[in-house]
């Protein structure tokens, strides 16, 4: 699996996405996501490479969940674990909210401590048995219920499989971003958020509206996004896709996504000016942010239309 990179896995699993879920609040702010569910990305990526994923959940049975994990570690199988971050001791306190869709890899045990590779951390981390149970059985929305997963039957992957997977991933992303019915998902979801921003100040007052903008920025630039709400990661994927498929148009569209990522970052700067109090918090400042998002939605629409029409052969 030496060929595997983060951008490639992200692209094969159609990670890029956008959704603004109405009526739902996360940490007292809007519920927005710039990517698909991590579990889906992983499953799709594995499927396109002919790898089977074994998954297991344990309801409330903490003892069974612990025994299962320990057994797999003993067998030398690295195991993916879904956890909540509120009780994750090595996380900076400022980042510890009730967020339950974090994933880490357990690959060994030293005495009573699990050896962890957490995508957020630069180095290997440890987690005690007690803390492991706590985070695997965090409660609330998306409760992990001890969820573990690992690949099985890993066979050699051919270049042809990768090429096929890349094309499938690209086509699926363009479909999801352009054609999901309703106005909350895909590029229309970005416009949906823009329309909300236009109303937030009148509806909630300048302070709360500013906090909501802050939430958009935090979700967009969170650790693991690669910056610009995963748009740079996707641009990097298209560059890698070009190396496999040799279609020069992929490089051009990669440039489009770089531009889109840069624009997401500019919108964050603009929103930051509001919640840092560098503007008068006038309605016109909110409208500037909304207009930037509308511009982003149009650019993303064009980029995905190009991808959709692209004739790709392997």
């Amino acid at each position: 699996m030496d060929f595997m990179t983060e951008p490639l896995a992200f692209g094969l699993g159609s990670g890029i996405f956008y959704i603004h879920i109405p009526f739902l609040q996360v940490n007292n702010g809007p519920a927005i996501s710039y990517r698909s569910m991590p579990g889906w990305i992983f499953s799709r990526t594995c499927k396109s490479l002919g790898v089977k994923v074994v998954r297991k959940k344990f309801g409330n049975n903490e003892a069974a969940a612990k025994a299962y994990l320990d057994q797999k570690i003993k067998e030398g199988v690295p195991v993916g674990c879904q956890v909540g971050v509120f009780n994750l001791p090595y996380f900076p306190p400022e980042y510890r909210f009730h967020f339950n869709a974090h994933n880490l890899i357990v690959w060994g045990k030293e005495g009573q401590d699990y050896l962890i590779s957490d995508p957020v951390m630069e180095t290997v981390t440890k987690l005690s048995e007690e803390d492991m149970i706590k985070v695997r059985f965090a409660k609330g929305p998306l409760a992990p219920k001890g969820h573990v997963y690992y690949p099985e039957n890993v066979k050699p992957v051919t270049t042809e499989m990768i090429k096929k997977g890349i094309i499938k991933g690209i086509k699926r992303s363009s479909r999801d971003m352009l054609h999901i019915p309703g106005n909350i998902a895909g590029v229309s979801g970005i416009k949906y958020t823009a329309n909300h921003i236009r109303k937030w100040r009148d509806k909630f007052g300048p302070r709360k509206a500013g906090l909501y903008l802050g939430q958009i920025v935090r979700m967009q630039e969170e650790i693991g996004t690669g910056g610009g709400g995963f748009r740079f990661l996707y641009a990097a994927f298209l560059e890698e896709a070009h190396a496999y498929l040799k279609n020069d148009e992929l490089l051009n569209i990669s440039q489009d996504f770089t531009k889109v990522g840069d624009l997401w970052r500019s919108s964050a700067v603009q929103m930051g000016r509001i919640y840092k109090g560098r503007t008068n918090n006038d309605q016109k400042d909110f409208l500037i942010c909304a207009d930037l998002l509308t511009e982003i939605a149009d650019l993303e629409k064009n980029a995905f239309l190009k991808l959709k029409k692209l004739k790709l052969d392997y």
């Binding site: 400022e94 802050g214 939430q215 935090r218 964050a268 930051g272 840092k276």
Partner: peptide, 15 residues
Amino acid sequence: GWEVKKAALDNAWDD
């Protein structure tokens, strides 16, 4: 880190 994001997180904690 990025100050734009830090300010958002600081604000959330003030709230």
